[in-house]
């Protein structure tokens, strides 16, 4: 994982989103142990307190749970929680940006949908 220092997103948010993606991609499965704050700090060359903040964010969303003295583990609902969260937050924001740009460029609704279909087919 590479951190983006120019991103609007603070580093701890970038960390939690990276771990979410790892869960979505099944690189981390339910009840798998995830990195500790110290492993993350070493891996990403950042302060352990920042890493801890990223992990706590996941715990707040109940994507991971803590086992005292053992570390943090992926919950069984993790994937559905992440999907729901990303749809309602990220995807909506992205679409807002697209619509804004389309309005600037006087792109009609039909044209926009056609573009969307085109991109989807191209996959």
């Amino acid at each position: 994982m590479v951190l983006n220092p120019n991103s609007m997103k603070p580093i701890y948010v970038q960390i939690s989103e990276w771990l979410e993606t790892e869960i979505l991609n099944d690189n981390l499965k339910a009840d798998d142990k995830i990195y500790s704050q110290y492993q993350l700090a070493d891996l990403l060359n950042i302060n352990p307190a920042t890493a801890a903040k990223g992990l706590n964010l996941l715990a707040d969303y109940q994507i991971v749970y803590k086992k005292r003295g053992l570390g943090m583990f992926v919950t069984s609902e993790a994937k559905s929680i992440i999907l729901e969260k990303r749809k309602s937050e990220n995807l909506k924001h992205l679409i807002e940006d697209v619509v804004k740009e389309a309005d600037y460029l006087n792109v009609s609704r039909e044209e926009l949908i056609r573009l969307l279909d085109e991109v989807r087919k191209g996959e």
Binding site: Y38, A41, D42, N45, I46, N47, P48
Partner: peptide, 10 residues
């Protein structure tokens, strides 16, 4: 130097 500090601090 930064990495040395971080690793030894951890």
């Amino acid at each position: 130097f930064y990495r040395t500090i971080l690793k030894d601090y951890i």
